[in-house]
Amino acid sequence: MLIVAGTIVTQPEGRAAFLDAVQPMVAATLNEVGCSEYVFSPDPNDDNRIMLYELWDGQASLDAHFASDHMAAWQETRKGLAVAGASINKYMIDSVESLG
Rank of each mutant, 00 (worst) to 15 (best):
L19P: 13
E13Q: 14
F40D: 12
V22Y: 01
R15T: 04
F40G: 01
V39F: 02
M25E: 12
G34W: 06
L19C: 11
G58Q: 10
T29K: 07
Q23F: 02
A16T: 09
A16C: 06
L30N: 13
P24S: 06
L55V: 11
E32W: 00
D47I: 00
D20Y: 02
C35D: 07
Q11L: 12
G14C: 12
E32F: 03
M25G: 02
G14K: 10
A60G: 07
T29L: 08
Y38T: 01
G34E: 00
V22M: 04
N31I: 06
R49Q: 11
F18G: 10
L55A: 14
Q23E: 14
E54D: 11
P42V: 00
P44A: 07
A21Q: 08
D46T: 11
A60N: 08
Q59I: 05
T29M: 04
Y38E: 08
S41Q: 01
Y53D: 01
D46I: 11
N45H: 14
V26D: 08
P12Q: 05
E54F: 05
E37Y: 08
S61R: 07
P42N: 07
M25D: 11
T29R: 05
V22R: 11
A21G: 09
E13H: 13
T29Y: 01
D57C: 10
D20W: 03
V22Q: 04
L30C: 13
E54Q: 14
V26H: 04
N48Y: 05
A21Y: 00
A28I: 01
S36C: 00
